[in-house]
Computed example of a mutant assay.
Amino acid sequence: MTNEKNNTINEEVIIENKDQVELTEEAVIEPVFDEGESTHQDDADPTNEQRLELQLLKDKLEEADNRYLRLQADFDNFRRRTRLDLEASEKYRAQKLITDLLPALDNFERAMKVEVDNEQTKSLLQGMDMVYRGLVDALTKEGVELIEAVGKEFDPHLHQAVMQGEDANYGSNIVTDEFQKGYLLKDRVIRPAMVKVNQ
């Protein structure tokens, strides 16, 4: 009697366990979904529309990056140009004044070449010479240099040829005469020398 009862209990346990196993297998095989959830596995992958939208966003981002890099380069160029302009402005700050003074220097030089025969005029010329030298010294301090011409090879950057001639004392393409002095301000020609060149 006891054995039969034990067997019955074992069968019930087995049956109960079997039901649990079956339920568990069902739960694994057919999971329960909430309402609104899709049962399709393809939804995890982006659709063509989503891929297109993603590509458009990537393109826009790349375009914005390129625009930013171009703007950065433009700004760097602008800063460099501004700095160079300021340096040039400082370096050649006196150019306008010097250019305006050059005709006065020419007039001083012409006046001092005049032949004089009385002491009063000689005294006046000495005073003009002192003023002239003062001007030349001030210009030299600002970086003004005289362009060498006579006896030098003609250089179109430094000389302006207004005549040609033939002179056996000079070689070909050599400056033989200077009609007006030329000047440099530091490394910039502010007035080329007006010259005669040997053929």
Rank of each mutant, 00 (worst) to 15 (best):
N3W: 13
N6F: 13
N7F: 02
I9R: 10
I9S: 06
E11H: 14
E12W: 07
I15C: 06
K18P: 01
D19F: 09
V21H: 06
L23S: 13
L23D: 13
L23W: 01
T24D: 00
E25K: 15
E26V: 09
E26M: 04
E26D: 05
A27C: 06
A27I: 03
P31S: 09
V32C: 06
T39F: 05
Q41R: 11
D43E: 10
D45T: 13
T47Q: 10
E49Q: 12
E49T: 03
L52P: 00
E53P: 04
E53Y: 11
Q55M: 13
K58M: 15
K58Q: 15
D59W: 11
L61F: 08
L61Y: 08
E62R: 14
E63M: 12
Y68N: 03
L71P: 01
Q72C: 11
D74I: 06
F75L: 09
D76N: 10
D76C: 02
N77T: 08
N77E: 14
R80L: 15
R81A: 07
R81P: 00
R83P: 01
R83A: 15
L84V: 07
E87L: 15
E90L: 15
K91V: 05
Y92R: 10
Y92F: 15
A94F: 11
A94I: 04
A94V: 06
Q95C: 05
K96I: 04
L97A: 14
D100Y: 05
L101Q: 07
F108T: 04
E109V: 02
E109A: 04
R110E: 09
A111T: 12
M112T: 11
M112K: 12
K113C: 05
V114T: 06
Q120R: 14
T121V: 13
T121Y: 02
T121F: 02
T121P: 01
K122V: 03
S123D: 02
L124Y: 08
L124K: 07
L124E: 07
R133W: 01
G134M: 13
A138P: 00
K141W: 04
E142G: 09
G143E: 10
L146Y: 06
L146V: 05
A149D: 10
A149E: 09
V150H: 08
V150G: 01
K152F: 00
K152V: 04
D155L: 00
D155R: 01
P156L: 03
H157T: 13
L158D: 09
L158W: 11
H159Y: 06
H159E: 00
H159N: 00
H159P: 00
V162A: 04
V162G: 02
Q164H: 10
E166F: 03
E166N: 09
D167L: 01
N169L: 14
N169T: 10
Y170G: 02
Y170L: 08
G171F: 03
G171T: 05
S172P: 04
S172H: 08
N173A: 00
V175K: 02
T176A: 01
T176L: 00
D177A: 14
F179Y: 12
F179I: 04
F179D: 05
K181T: 03
G182K: 05
G182I: 03
Y183A: 09
L184D: 05
R188S: 11
V189G: 15
V189A: 12
I190R: 08
I190E: 06
V195P: 04
V197H: 03
Q199D: 13
Q199S: 14
